[in-house]
């Protein structure tokens, strides 16, 4: 029972983490809070669904397609919203409103194209297959979610720390002008970062839809708030912090379902987050240092 809840909490948290890592990456590198991220997550879920249903391709390909499409939506948010606003010297509040506006457009488009009813992925091996571990049922899907989160963190941390591009990204995070002065093509680095961030959101969208057996145009709103929570919990711009924060939020939510019932899941979850923030106002990891792995 306890092990089962632990597995459920960690795998749910892993999906939050994948979403939040993209969120925190864009914030850490460009100081942009991209509020269209939830809608990008939702679009990822629909693209994956269409690939599975209409094209009848296997799920891993659907995840890949969803991540790519969502990554392109991330690029679109930079090109349509954040870059033009930055060029005009707009305040970052404007960027937040711009992101929200884009989210509403993306949600409206999804309603037009896919309808408003809740749909779900067809039965598949990823969600169906399971193995027994210490008396707990471990779905293949849960393993994939946890593995994906770990892999993402390790890959991103290594990229940022050990590669030329990683150093360039951290330089952009420090100062775009300094980055330009050392010859870094800042516009391209920003596009890349938005792509990775969107792709993570899209991948998370597919995993979440499989776990909860539901896809709808409004599914991005809840995760946006959770992503924001994890972003702050883990320390702004902190990638490892996003992983730990995501898993923590997942565990807290599952625990609160067990203790007080599912109706209070979000209330208790966010209540505990509030308590953590009251005791540690800078988040779990006190580094304001951006994109520190």
């Amino acid at each position: 029972m306890l092990v089962q809840q632990l597995v459920n909490g960690v795998s749910l948290g892993a999906i939050y983490a994948v979403f939040a890592i993209g969120f925190t990456l864009v914030f850490g590198v460009m100081n942009v809070l991209n509020l269209s991220q939830g809608a990008v997550f939702m679009w990822g879920a629909y693209v994956g669904l269409e690939v599975v249903r209409t094209l009848a391709l296997p799920l891993p390909l659907a995840i890949l397609a969803a991540a790519t499409a969502a990554g392109l939506l991330g690029v679109l948010s930079e090109v349509l919203v954040f870059r033009p606003l930055q060029r005009r010297g707009a305040h970052r509040w404007m960027g937040m409103v711009g992101g929200l506006a884009l989210a509403r457009i993306l949600i409206g488009l999804a309603q037009e194209i896919f309808g408003t009813q809740v749909v779900r992925y067809p039965d598949n091996a990823l969600a169906g297959a399971a193995l027994e571990l210490l008396g707990a049922r471990l779905q293949l899907l849960q393993i994939v979610a946890i593995g994906a989160a770990l892999l993402m963190v390790i890959a991103l941390a290594a990229l940022l720390r050990y590669t030329n591009v990683g150093r360039a990204i951290r330089t952009v995070a420090f100062s775009e002008n300094v980055a330009r002065l050392v010859g870094v093509p800042v516009d391209r680095i920003r596009l890349m970062t938005f792509f990775v961030s969107g792709a993570l959101a899209g991948g998370a969208g597919v995993l979440w839809s499989l776990l909860f057996q539901s896809v709808s145009p409004f599914m991005g709103d809840g995760i946006l708030l959770k992503g924001l929570t994890v972003l702050i919990l883990g320390g702004l711009g902190n990638i490892v912090g996003a992983l730990v924060g995501g898993v923590l939020l997942g565990l807290v939510e599952v625990a609160s379902v067990v203790v007080v019932g599912s109706g209070y899941r979000d209330a208790v979850g966010f209540g505990i987050v509030l308590l953590i923030l009251l005791t540690r106002p800078t988040g779990l990891f006190a580094t304001r240092e951006t994109t520190r792995a």
């Binding site: 150093r167 360039a168 951290r170 330089t171 050392v182 010859g183």
Partner: peptide
């Protein structure tokens, strides 16, 4: 000066060669 404070001294120099 604008050295990239969070990067190490060597990383500052290496990133300097980015546009070389």
């Amino acid at each position: 000066r604008q050295v990239i404070a969070p990067l190490s001294v060597e990383e500052n120099l290496r990133v300097g060669a980015y546009g070389r």
